[in-house]
């Protein structure tokens, strides 16, 4: 009984532990020292204040887009399109960041964030609406919309939106009034992390304490019962997807305003895809997603350090990620089949 209640906590911990063991075996088999590698990984991710800040900065987009995937997941929808929503959100924020000039920061920053939220949300509402009213599976549609978003952004940033003064395919820098506060130690830590935590609290309140969140959870766990009880299932699905896209768009906007200060083509190393693993490992709950984004952020921050100091390649961290994704996915499938 107690074991069953603890399962949602214990299972992810075990899969993380297992992942480290597997990665350790690989390191050992390649002639490295697993313990040295682990200690370097820990040192790099939380052994110094810069390391810690780097972990938090890497965790920021993962947390936000992880929340995005989680919200959809709670409505029973699999949003594979967080990457595309994040990219378009970033592009919109970058545009708002340099198109408006002469605004005070307290107006300009919210405008840019809102642009990212709006564009991400609208982009994700498309697969939501297609699913709700046409029955097209959201997984297929979001995957296809990812290609559209990536290529469209690529096209714009190499064309009309390209900064003429720059060699790289990138937009102009955003106005200083649109920049989020950031640490100066090269960790890329910015106020965006605080915003992401606020978003996590917001999502938790939404799911637990509001009628909309109640409807989202009802549709996710029992769409038929929800429909019979008078919930508009289609509208709830569209709302959940729009919210999901809004969070992913916010992730993109914060990367632009807090880290890159402009939209840089292919700036995302696949945050939107990693976020699926973050959401699954976190069990779709805001607290779980926060913790798992910190883990993935730490892995990413520590891996660079580990590679520099122990000659263990950073891809080892990818193995840890892979195993975690694998077991989280297996757990998710098992839960669905029940």
């Amino acid at each position: 009984m107690i074991l069953r209640r603890l399962a949602p906590v214990v299972q992810p911990l075990l899969s993380v532990l297992g992942a480290f063991v597997v990665a350790g075996i690989v390191v050992w088999a390649c002639g490295g020292s697993p313990f040295e590698a682990l200690s370097a990984l820990l040192q790099g991710s939380c052994g110094s204040s810069t390391g810690l800040l780097r972990t938090l900065s890497k965790a920021t987009p993962l947390l936000l887009s992880g929340l995005a995937v989680a919200v959809a997941l709670r409505a029973g929808l699999f949003n594979i399109g967080a990457e595309g929503q994040l990219i378009l959100g970033a592009l919109a924020a970058a545009w708002a960041g340099h198109a408006f000039t002469g605004l005070p920061a307290w107006i300009h920053i919210p405008i840019c964030l809102a642009a990212g939220v709006l564009v991400g949300g609208l982009w994700a509402a498309i697969p939501g609406a297609l699913r709700a009213w046409r029955g097209s599976h959201e997984v297929i549609v979001t995957i296809m919309l990812n290609y559209l978003a990536i290529q469209f952004a690529h096209f714009l940033v190499n064309g009309v939106m390209k900064d003429p003064g720059s060699m790289a395919p990138a937009t102009a820098m955003v106005e200083p009034s649109a920049r989020l506060w950031a640490a100066a130690d090269g960790s890329n830590f910015s106020a965006g992390f605080g915003l992401a935590l606020l978003a996590a609290v917001g999502v938790a309140v939404l799911l637990r304490r509001t009628a909309l969140g109640f409807e989202i959870r009802a549709v996710g766990l029992g769409a038929d019962a929800a429909r019979v009880a008078g919930v508009n299932v289609g509208r709830t699905m569209v709302s959940a997807m729009a919210l999901s896209g809004a969070l992913a768009g916010l992730a993109g906007a914060i990367e632009v305003l807090g880290v890159h200060r402009r939209y840089l083509d292919a700036f995302s190393p696949g945050y939107g895809f990693d976020s699926i693993a973050v959401a699954l490992l976190g069990g779709g709950s805001p607290v779980g997603v926060t913790l798992s984004s910190l883990l993935f952020g730490g892995l990413s921050a520590g891996a660079t350090y580990m590679e520099a100091w122990t000659h263990v390649p950073r891809q080892i961290a990818g193995i840890v990620q892979g195993v975690v994704i694998f077991s989280a996915g297996a757990r998710y499938l098992k839960g669905r089949r029940r």
């Binding site: 304490r209 009628a211 009802a218 766990l221 029992g222 019962a225 929800a226 019979v228 008078g230 919930v231």
Partner: peptide, 30 residues
């Protein structure tokens, strides 16, 4: 399938359909 959401608790199941009804503790904020 249609009556209950088995993974919801009883309070949530009893609220379902009345969750926008203030007298049942519903409304925009529950």
């Amino acid at each position: 399938r249609e009556g209950l959401i088995l993974d919801f608790d009883l309070a949530e199941n009893l609220l379902l359909g009345r969750h926008r009804d203030a007298s049942a503790g519903g409304g925009r904020f529950l």
